[in-house]
Amino acid sequence: MADSKQDALIEAVDTALIGTLENMAFAEVVPLRKVPDCEFVDELNVYSVIDLIEPRAGRAVLILSKQLAESITESIYGMFEDGELGPDHQRDAVNEILNTLTGRLCVEMFGEDTIYNLGIPEFGMLAEKAEFQDPSSSWIQIDYSVEGWLLRVLIDTTLS
């Protein structure tokens, strides 16, 4: 992929992720490539993946630690609901964040005039997905610190 296209994609992911997490979970997002001395906990355990169906095939993946998933879920539900939060809440909250993030990313990338469609997000344990632990060169990897925890976004380059 040409550098200019890749830079535009990365900037679009920044905008989409910051907008999504600030709006849904009031979470501070730091792009690590812009703040290289940022301190964060380097731990990744869970993922959520979503397919882009049209206008072309692609995939977006969110990878984060269980603790960050828990923290984001508590932020979202803490605003709204009392009661105990479990793994189902975390899975649902992370999937919803990826769904919203990818939608925003598509608007950034494809503009207002293109119809695009997404699949349904799937959540799982990172240990079970070798392709996300060691992504091939067709993926773009973008790392962030979110509330002091590492959060990784993988984008299939066919998205651009």
Binding site: G103, C106, V107, E112, D113
Partner: peptide, 9 residues
């Protein structure tokens, strides 16, 4: 309501 909301949609 949609996460894939642009003018075309």
């Amino acid at each position: 309501i949609t996460s894939i909301g642009n003018e075309a949609r």
